[in-house]
């Protein structure tokens, strides 16, 4: 049974303080392969801080982030040597930013963008890199003929999909997404959601997705974590949290959704 398999990610008592204000307070959760964990909550609730700690961009003040990866011993992300962490992260982790421009090199062609993580990991065969890039363009539903075009010439939705291709090309164990559908119009968003669902299933990804869109959260994630003022106030199956919210704040959040 897969519930005895070690989770890819175990977070234990994670705490982060800014100017004596608790941005994240005693956060604990686990994440398995093939599982999507949604984090919802208002701006300033600590979602992004949590994501930055998980991404190796910001050290937590307390707590552990434990990674269990195939072919290596269990390790605590923030107790690794910096060099070791920086070497490890690009091979196991991808971050999808809300703004594709933060995750792409706009002056480098689509193919170059997709190939860069591979080259960082030591790939040195142009022909292979290029065919992998084209395959990934197809994977994210971009015409492979545009492999040499600059991302600047792409639409917002295409840029976001290119960013996803760049993130997933190294087959990371763990994908962190920060509002991946934010700022896109509804039809583009639908296409992206569909794509993400397919990729999660196809590559058995473990995903943490931060969003304030409950519809997106419900569609993509198996479990939800509701954050308020740096704490996790409610957690459970996505439909459980959204249909039977227990906490006052969660009820407010759920009842505040616009209805079409």
């Amino acid at each position: 049974m897969s519930d005895v398999v070690k989770p890819v990610l175990q977070v234990n008592g994670l705490t982060k303080v800014f100017d004596r204000r608790l941005a994240c307070q005693d956060i604990s959760f686990t994440l398995h392969r093939g599982e999507v964990l949604g984090i919802v909550g208002e701006s300033g609730s600590g979602k992004s801080t949590l994501l930055k700690c998980l991404a190796g961009l910001m050290p937590p003040d307390a707590g552990n982030i434990t990674l269990s990866l195939p072919d290596r011993e269990e390790c605590d992300l923030w107790r690794l040597e910096e060099a070791e962490r920086e070497r490890l992260l690009p091979t196991i982790l991808a971050i999808i930013h809300q703004n594709a421009r933060d995750g792409l090199r706009l002056d480098v062609s689509a193919g170059g963008n997709i190939s860069e993580p591979l080259m960082t990991n030591g790939h040195r065969h142009y022909g292979t890199l290029r065919s992998v890039a084209m395959e990934w363009l197809k994977n994210v539903e971009i015409d492979p003929a545009r492999v040499d075009d600059l991302p600047q010439t792409f639409s917002g939705g295409m840029q976001q999909r290119l960013q996803i291709a760049r993130g997933l090309v190294t087959h990371p164990q763990l994908v962190l997404m920060d509002e991946p559908t934010g700022g896109l119009d509804v039809s583009v968003q639908a296409k992206l959601l569909d794509l993400l669902r397919r990729l999660v299933r196809e590559f058995n990804l473990a995903v943490v997705i931060v969003t304030h869109d409950l519809g997106v959260a419900r569609l993509l994630s198996d479990r939800l974590m509701v954050m308020q003022s740096g704490r996790v106030i409610e957690t459970g199956l996505s439909d459980r949290v959204l249909e039977d919210p227990r906490q006052p704040y969660t009820q407010l959040l759920v009842s505040s959704v616009l209805q079409v």
Partner: peptide, 19 residues
Amino acid sequence: HAFARYGLMQVRLYEDIAR
């Protein structure tokens, strides 16, 4: 340099060949 992460330089060569 510290992490010997030179993928970016390789990207420049990639762009040359692609273009």
